[in-house]
């Protein structure tokens, strides 16, 4: 069974006198452990696709099943729980709470968790160590470099151990060195069994994935699996 299943998803925004169709009839299946890139030029609808896949926005029509749950029909409360437990986000602009320490930013999802673990701080330290930030626990985003901020974001996406992580232009605000570091982290996470969806317009970033889906004008233009050259390494 697919981890993520989209059937005929449409999304349109209604203005005063005309309707813009951002997504047209998207059908997409993603399996557990997949490493996927969604590419397309700006305005192609890839960010909207991520918003719907990440339960940040609801589709206008179509069916969306995530981890066996029909999320397009869920109430706000249940949808929030899905975001909390099943999805991790890494954003281009990091989206960390300003003035709050790295440690507290990382624990934020657990604040809204239904059954938060007792060792919150301990787990936050663990994931921050995993992204190499054990020495920056009490720094606020303003005191961290772009690369460090992005690693805090990754740590936050991991804290609740969700099966799937969406990364929207994760290297967009980083220099090439930090970009490479970030991508290495994602590669590592896939090897640990996470499902990762990269949204990008950068073909170099997209190349890291095993499957590249390209979006054009709200439709899937191509869906290609990579040559199995890397497969032995994965196995």
């Amino acid at each position: 069974m697919s981890l993520l299943e989209m059937n005929s998803i449409c999304k349109s925004y209604r203005n005063i006198d005309f309707e813009t169709q951002v997504l047209k009839d998207i059908t997409l299946h993603i399996n557990e452990g997949d490493y996927i890139s969604i590419i397309g030029p700006s305005g192609s609808g890839k960010s909207t696709l991520m918003a719907i896949a990440g339960c940040l926005s609801k589709p206008t029509s179509g069916e969306y099943i995530l981890d066996g749950e029909e999320v397009d029909k869920l109430s706000d409360r249940k949808l929030s729980r899905v975001r909390n437990e099943k999805i991790g986000f890494v954003f281009q602009a990091f989206h960390l709470l300003p003035g709050v320490t790295a440690l507290d930013n990382v624990t934020l999802p657990l604040v809204y968790s239904r059954n938060p673990p007792s060792d919150i701080k301990e787990r936050a330290r663990e994931v921050l160590a995993k992204v190499g930030l054990e020495h920056r626990l009490h720094h606020t985003p303003g005191q961290l470099s772009g690369g460090e901020q992005q690693r805090v974001t990754i740590a936050r996406s991991l804290i609740n151990n969700p099966p799937i992580i969406f990364a929207d232009e994760p290297t967009g605000n980083l220099d090439s060195k930090n970009g490479i570091e970030t991508m290495k982290t994602f590669d590592k996470l896939v090897k640990e069994g996470k499902t990762i969806v990269l949204i990008t317009h950068d073909s170099e970033v997209a190349e890291h994935a095993d499957r590249i889906i390209s979006i054009l004008d709200g439709e899937i233009a191509s869906d290609t699996k990579r040559q199995p050259s890397n497969l032995p390494e994965k196995l």
Binding site: G54, L56, R77, S80, R83, N84, H95, L96, L108
Partner: peptide, 12 residues
């Protein structure tokens, strides 16, 4: 937006 993304409900 950030709080909602990581799981805050409307009532939160």
């Amino acid at each position: 937006g950030i709080r909602r993304a990581v799981g805050a409900t409307r009532s939160d």
